[in-house]
Computed example of a mutant assay.
Amino acid sequence: MSDLGAAWAGGGHRGSLREAASVIGVRIKSSYARNNDTQLWPEHREAYEIFGACATQWRVIAGVGNAIHQGIDYTALESVMRMRGVEDTAARFEQIRHIEAGALGVINKR
């Protein structure tokens, strides 16, 4: 599942994910972009949609000339899951953490 996060951050998944990342000020170098080889399995769709809904909820440490993304704000994530009526929040949380790890691996390499 971390491939989903890397695809999201690298813009390699359908739906202009690179544009979604740019909304929150994340610019991904083309050298980190991935091919469109990442598949979204049906059992991961809900987690991926929730991850996308939290696209503006990153914890970021701003430094001189760069920013380090620490991860999604989990209180916001919990709120999104509650608003969406997610039944198995523990399972979705673990899936989202895998997606987040893949995204962080790309975002923080810029």
Rank of each mutant, 00 (worst) to 15 (best):
S31I: 12
V26I: 12
G105H: 01
G10D: 05
V23M: 09
R59K: 15
I28K: 00
Y48M: 13
A90E: 12
A76D: 11
S79R: 14
H69I: 08
K29C: 11
E78W: 13
F51M: 03
D3E: 15
V80T: 15
I107M: 15
N66Y: 15
G85W: 04
G102L: 02
E49A: 06
I50E: 02
H69K: 02
A103T: 10
N35K: 05
G12Y: 07
L104C: 07
I72T: 10
C54S: 11
A21H: 02
V80N: 06
D37F: 08
L17F: 09
A90V: 14
I107P: 00
V26M: 01
N66P: 00
G85T: 06
G65Q: 04
R97W: 06
F51R: 06
A7H: 01
A101D: 14
E87R: 14
Q57E: 14
E46D: 06
A55T: 01
R92Y: 01
G10P: 03
R82P: 00
W8A: 14
I96C: 04
H13L: 15
A62F: 11
D3P: 02
A6G: 14
V60F: 08
P42V: 08
R92I: 09
M83Q: 15
E94S: 07
N35W: 02
A20C: 03
C54A: 15
A62Y: 09
S22R: 14
D37L: 06
G15S: 12
H44D: 08
T38P: 02
S16C: 11
R45I: 10
M1D: 13
W41S: 09
H13S: 06
E19H: 08
R110H: 07
A9W: 03
I96E: 10
A20L: 12
R82N: 13
D88N: 15
G105K: 03
E43H: 11
L17Q: 11
W58D: 01
S30P: 02
R27I: 08
N35C: 04
A55L: 09
E19G: 03
R34D: 00
G63Q: 12
S31M: 13
A53H: 11
G25C: 08
A20H: 11
R27G: 05
H69C: 11
H69P: 04
D3R: 15
T89I: 13
A47I: 04
E94H: 06
W41A: 07
V23W: 02
S16W: 04
